[in-house]
Design a protein around this nucleic acid. Structure first.
Length: 428
RNA sequence: GCGGCCGUAGCUUAACGGUAAAGCACUCGGUUGUGGUCCGAGAGCAUGCGGGUUCAAGUCCCGUCGGUCGCCCCA
């Protein structure tokens, strides 16, 4: 008995309705990205492992336990990309893109890989779209990317999108804050839940984001009191720009991003979907921020940079929750044929429609008219062209209005013209 | 990596420990060449996989793989 194969764990086939969602999002993203002056970029699906280890952070879960890393036959350590920013920075440096007019703006829409237990909106192969602006930056750029993503969500019908924003400070001010926070947490450790006590060492910042440890937040040192003048000024201006373009945001002084390369302003997008108080934290749709230090980690000069990425599967979840209706593209015209001569004429006619940019469906592989009509009905065709033996012989076709059932014979040569006319009438 | 729940046809679900069913979907019919309704028929390598208990396992037990939810973390 043949064994049935399954797709690898946490990875899915995308087709049918799901594919329609993907295509819709891709279309909206690409169009908006172009308008905002982003160019597309494709980087290899894998990179030298160090590209991620150094940038994302050796201590992060992504690098420590979630990377699909392996040795090639040649002995190179490579990893399937777990995220999109580091590869793009690598490409920027490798191709000396700082010799281009700055900043360089890239967008992408592609799959990423992280080896972890799958869960709602979390897969081992997942898709993200994202934007990166490298070489020249400033608060206005951050605000514009947030606005861009906000627009995309709006166009995709995702309701109740919330932006949470914070400033993590640059490396220097962050260090001061970390020290102060650690000291505080140590002193107040009796307020911490068991989980937070455990993560004290590795990730003390998480305590501030913990739902159980509410009390600890009250007197905790705030990052915003520790960041330097420049960070503070940048942050303030970003917020002003956001107000200018009408993007509502929540200041979240406890927002922390999981990747090491972030500096300064950071933000995450949430869709608050159905409000159910005691449910877990709403799923983050995406996030981003400044990463001015990244280029140096990869061995280049300092380059101001900022970017954001959004999860496609999570966006689809949010679209569905928001009641977004995927309107299926229905064929307007269907060609049904009967007999060999009619089949030949159908092929020619099909090409003629194609040349006129009118999408046409067919089921040439089926011979019985009945099943072809059934197919046309199922697809939702507006007009069906029927070419029977008789019609083929006299060089005519039947146009059938699928709603009213009315039929009319026209010359084969007039078919496209007549169909166009009818479709137009239908629209009005 | 850890814990809860789940795994029967393409899909949604039945089956007291005793012959594995139904609906939807699919294909074909309901006389010569006409769909979305109706009627009929057909087809389908279905109990995820491997062990165990039992006269007998879809059903109970163990393992494993997958899914799902949560933890961790994150998109």
């Amino acid at each position: 008995m043949p064994k049935k194969f399954q797709s690898p764990g946490g990875m899915h086939d995308v087709f049918g309705r799901e594919y329609d969602y993907f295509e819709k999002i891709r279309e909206v993203v690409c169009r908006n990205a172009r308008i905002y002056g982003f160019e597309g970029i494709e980087t290899p699906i894998m990179e030298d492992k160090r590209v991620f280890a150094r940038t994302v952070g050796e201590q992060t879960d992504i690098v420590e336990k979630e990377m699909y890393a392996f040795k090639t036959k040649g002995g190179d350590d490579v990893a399937l990309r777990p995220e999109g920013t580091a590869p793009i920075m690598r490409a920027y440096i490798e191709h000396s893109l700082y010799t281009k007019p700055q900043p360089v703006k890239f967008f992408y829409f592609k799959p990423f890989f992280r080896y972890e237990r799958s869960q709602a909106g979390r897969y081992r192969q997942f898709w993200q779209f994202g934007f990166e602006v490298i070489g020249k930056g400033g608060p206005v750029v951050d605000a514009q990317i947030i606005k861009l993503i906000h627009n995309i969500f709006k166009e995709l019908g995702v309701k109740n999108v919330m932006v949470e924003i914070n400033n993590m400070g640059d490396e220097k001010c962050r260090e001061d804050f970390h020290a102060a926070l650690k000291k505080y947490l140590k002193k107040e450790s009796n307020l911490l839940c068991a989980d937070c006590k455990r993560r004290m060492k590795k990730n003390p910042l998480r305590a501030l984001d913990c739902k159980k440890c509410v009390k600890i937040k009250e007197n905790a040192p705030q990052i915003l009191d520790y960041i330097c003048k420049k960070c503070k000024e940048d942050f303030k201006r970003t917020l002003e720009f956001l107000e200018e373009v009408g993007v509502p945001y929540d200041l979240n002084p406890f927002l922390i991003r999981g990747l090491d390369y972030y500096t300064g302003t950071v933000y995450e997008f949430f869709a608050s979907g159905k409000e159910e108080e005691d449910e877990g934290a709403p799923l983050a749709l995406g996030g981003g921020g400044r990463y001015d230090g990244l280029s140096e980690v990869l061995g280049d000069e300092a380059r101001p940079a900022t970017g954001a990425a959004v999860g496609v599967e999570r966006t689809i979840l949010a679209m569905k929750e928001s009641g977004f209706k995927m309107e299926k593209e229905r064929p307007q015209v269907f060609i049904a044929q009967l007999g060999d001569l009619a089949k030949k004429k159908s092929l020619t006619l099909f090409e003629e429609f194609k040349n006129n940019n009118i999408p046409v469906s067919e089921s040439f592989a089926q011979d019985s008219l009945k099943s072809q009509m059934a197919r046309a009905g199922k697809l939702g065709a507006t007009i069906t062209i029927i070419i029977g033996k008789e019609e083929a012989a006299e060089d005519m076709v039947i146009l059938r209005d699928m709603d009213s059932g009315q039929q009319e014979k026209v010359q084969t040569s007039e078919t496209v013209k007549e169909v166009k006319k009818r479709l137009k009438e239908k629209k009005n």
